[in-house]
Amino acid sequence: MAMLEVHDVHAYYGNIHALKGISITVEEGEIVTLIGANGAGKSTTLKTISGLLKPRQGHVHLNGEDLAPFSAHEVVYKGVSMVPEGRGVFSRLTVSENLDMGAFHRSDRGGISADMERVFDLFPRLEERRTQVAGTLSGGEQQMLATARALMARPSLLLMDEPSMGLAPVLVESVFDTIVDINKEGTTVLLVEQNAHMALQIASRGYVLQTGEIVLKDSAEGLRENPTVQKAYLGID
């Protein structure tokens, strides 16, 4: 049984039909990537998985359980945690307050402080800036904070929405290295990316989304070799 199974999901914003029958599966321990142009519906897909948006048709199963009856905060308790697009840190709170918020639904103090150490190992920059207000962090640091905060929930499935957005190439590489590290520690990752080149290097499989529909799915290698993908998303003619 797949860890995450999205089956024939249709989602709407009012009358806008944003997702038109999407099906995705993610196996435990994988990194799966979702690529597509602006407005294709990638963020919308993540929102329907995390419960922020309810599908009008189709279903989302996590470890065999239908998530339809659960609202967004309950989905967090089921082990799904999201790094929102545009970072979405609490900009007036400090770095450590933000991290505390990430562990909000947990009550194991010992575990929380151990995880705090763990994310500081992953992101030493954040440790130096524990008491700094998140809004004054650089863009890259805010991205780190958003990722670190999502990890504080100790998720089994991490949904990441464009973690490389607006980062310098060096930082992009280190963000992707971190994703691989997180994955090696046992977290399954569903990664939405514009940077298809990098995403397809660390992912095992990928889906290509176009105007609300999955137009291609294949192994990462398969997608890298695919002429359409090369042309549209990798910038290779």
Binding site: L52, H73, E74, V76, F90, E97, F104, H105
Partner: peptide, 21 residues
């Protein structure tokens, strides 16, 4: 108090943190 603070800052992110709005 922390729930309120998170909600005041950003309702969507707060909900994504597991806060019952």
């Amino acid at each position: 108090g922390r729930q309120w603070m998170a909600m005041r800052e950003d309702e969507d992110v707060a909900e994504a943190m597991g806060i019952t709005l």
